[in-house]
């Protein structure tokens, strides 16, 4: 992975950074997974656990920042090493945001599951969460294997996530129009869906950072057009069935 330095302590420090990133990634994945599970199974206990766990990620980010600054000051890194360290700072910031978004989903569990909601409401959200989590998992796997040539999947899945989010947006609007009592839970679910979609975006950011770390070049800029919910008006929603 890294080239050998005369000072093995330096290598140790760089390895420690990537190990901390992986640990943060594992925590972030677990938090999002549990937040969605808490939502789908109406489990406030699990939601509380997710909210508490966020502190671990905050702590992780602070530690990586400190360590990275110290390494830069002490070792004057160049080329790959410098990219590795700056990349670690950026990835940890993205992972910390993923944790926050997961926490926000968990916070809404009580409000959404207040009344009894039909399971069909959650099915779409679960599918969206699975897509976003797969994205995060595969990106972090690339961080482990450094095989950036496979990074093309990131853009494909980003498109899928956006399409799924747009579809979910329409569906939730339809439910709200059907029955005003649905407005409260559906609004919360809309925010949950938005949060999960953002998690996918952060995963894409991480992928771009990894590409930069490994190749020293930016991933060619052809950002997908994003979700289309900004264009959905009342007349565009589905007829109530």
């Amino acid at each position: 992975m890294q080239s050998v330095h005369t000072m093995s302590a330096y290598d140790e420090e760089l390895k420690y950074l990537s190990k901390r990133i992986a640990a943060m990634g594992g925590h972030a994945e677990r938090m999002v997974e549990q937040a969605v599970a808490a939502l789908v199974n109406a489990d406030p206990g699990l939601a509380q656990k997710v909210i508490r766990d966020d502190a671990v990620l905050d702590e992780g980010q602070r530690e990586i920042d400190d360590k990275a600054i110290i390494i830069i000051a002490r070792r004057q890194p160049m080329a790959t090493d410098l990219r590795e360290i700056v990349g670690a700072i950026r990835i940890s910031a993205d992972l910390e945001r993923v944790g926050d978004l997961g926490k926000n989903v968990a916070k809404r569990v009580v409000a959404v599951t207040d009344g009894r909601q039909p399971t069909s409401l959650f099915r779409g959200l679960e599918a969206l969460a699975n897509l976003a989590l797969t994205q995060l998992k595969e990106v972090l796997d690339v961080y482990a294997s450094r095989s950036v040539e496979k990074i093309g999947f990131v853009r494909d899945r980003d498109d899928q996530i956006d399409a799924m989010y747009t579809s979910l947006f329409r569906e939730l609007l339809t439910y709200m129009m059907e029955d005003p009592r649905n407005i409260t839970p559906c609004t919360h679910l809309l925010f949950c869906a938005k949060n999960i979609e953002r998690i996918g975006d952060h995963a894409t950011n991480i992928a771009e950072t990894i590409y930069y770390i490994v190749t020293g070049e930016q991933l060619p800029a052809e950002r997908p057009k994003g979700d289309k919910t900004d264009k959905i008006g009342l007349s565009e929603t589905l007829p109530v069935k």
């Binding site: 992975m1 390895k15 190990k19 640990a23 594992g26 677990r30 482990a144 294997s145 095989s147």
Partner: peptide, 19 residues
């Protein structure tokens, strides 16, 4: 899939309990 000798285990198995 995607494990190879020389790869770091803690990067591949990131779940908190595995760490």
């Amino acid at each position: 899939g995607g494990i190879a000798p020389g790869m770091s285990l803690s990067l591949k198995f990131r779940a908190p309990e595995m760490q």
